[in-house]
């Protein structure tokens, strides 16, 4: 399966090996660390899971089944938090990106980690923002009340 960023509800930025992901509709935001930053770039780039696993396995000292299990857990969590969505339109030939370390420079595997922050949700609960379609924005005259 391939995925893409759940835009426009989700925006993201990479900083010093950490991915900051903001879910604008839910009021939550996330920090992806460990191998999460590199894997995240591959996932939202539409790279298929087996290709990502192969890329990670070639660059770390961990067993393939360990990497595959961690990757599946990570992707499930990203999906469950609605940070990514399945992308049926992605090309089956989408190549692995360059976010993973070069094969041959094997390093210890650091499992991808997701830290969720909900401390801003109260702000959104008070004043949620509903993005609505510009066509046919219904109107009423206050004179008609």
């Amino acid at each position: 399966m391939r995925f893409r960023l759940n835009s426009p509800d989700v925006v993201q930025e990479v900083l010093d090996g950490e991915v900051i992901v903001v879910h604008l509709a839910s009021g939550t935001y996330y920090s992806l660390t460990g191998s999460g930053a590199a894997i995240w770039a591959q996932v939202i780039g539409g790279v298929a899971e087996p290709v990502i696993v192969a890329g990670v396995v070639s660059s770390v000292t961990a067993a393939p089944e360990v990497v595959a299990a961690e990757l599946r857990r990570f992707v499930r969590e990203l999906q469950s938090e609605q940070l990514i969505v399945a992308d049926a339109s992605a090309s089956p030939d989408a190549p692995a990106g360059d976010a993973l370390p070069e094969a041959g420079t094997r390093e210890p595997f650091v499992a991808p980690s997701i830290q969720k922050y909900s401390d801003m949700q109260d702000l959104l609960l008070v004043d949620p923002i509903h993005e609505v379609d510009p066509v046919g924005w219904p109107t009423r005259s206050t004179a008609a009340e």
């Binding site: 835009s7 925006v11 010093d16 900051i20 604008l24 920090s31 801003m120 959104l124």
Partner: peptide, 30 residues
Amino acid sequence: MPRAAALRAVAPSTLFQLPGDRGESLSRLA
């Protein structure tokens, strides 16, 4: 302070209050 932690301090509170151009806003704050 780590830069990513500073971004977590400034970006969500700005983005959640100001609709429109929020992807660009996050890039500028980063």
